[in-house]
């Protein structure tokens, strides 16, 4: 943030200092600066939004197919391959992390997940996932519930959680 502010102030002061001709002369340098700022912002944003699928550290699995992951978060697949029950934790439907997780990892829209849960809950064919209210709660619940699965932004992953790679 501070760097971005500095660059902005620099550009602004230059505009006042120099006349049009000098600005044209310095065009090339401006372009490079603007591009740099743009790229920095982009990487900062995408970094913040990259999600990881996390599981309880004792879940004996390092990768999973997107299909199986959809089945787990769709509450259709209820146990790991060793028979242990899966406990699914999700954030609210309108949470930006939940939306991003649905779209970029499951390749589904949040409303599709909601529909799938509602259909199962109200026809008796399944249950709904457990709702957590914050990323902190997600982290502690997944770390403390055997067989648990959830998702958090990449930079929040620590040794108390295992990351499940999506094939």
């Amino acid at each position: 943030m501070r760097i971005r502010e500095k660059v902005y102030l620099k550009l602004k002061s230059r505009r006042y200092k120099h006349n049009l001709a000098t600005i044209f002369k310095n065009m090339k340098r401006h372009c490079v600066t603007i591009l740099l700022v743009f790229l920095m912002t982009l990487s900062a944003v995408s970094g913040a939004w990259a999600q990881d699928v996390v599981v309880h550290p004792e879940v004996d699995k390092s990768d999973i197919s997107r299909n199986a992951l959809r089945a787990i978060f769709g509450m259709r697949l209820r146990k790991w391959s060793n028979g242990e029950p899966i406990t699914v934790f999700v954030l609210r439907d309108d949470s930006p992390v939940h939306i991003e997780f649905s779209k970029t990892i499951l390749h589904m829209f949040p409303y599709q997940l909601r529909r799938a849960w509602d259909r199962q809950v109200f026809s008796g064919t399944g249950q709904s996932p457990f709702l957590v209210n914050s990323l902190e709660e997600m982290r502690t619940k997944v770390a403390s519930t055997p067989g648990a699965i959830g998702y958090i932004p990449r930079e929040g992953v620590d040794e108390k959680l295992s990351v499940l790679k999506v094939r």
Partner: peptide
């Protein structure tokens, strides 16, 4: 409507 579900085991 009011419903309940009990999952005895995952199966």
């Amino acid at each position: 409507g009011l419903n309940t579900s009990i999952q005895f085991t995952p199966d």
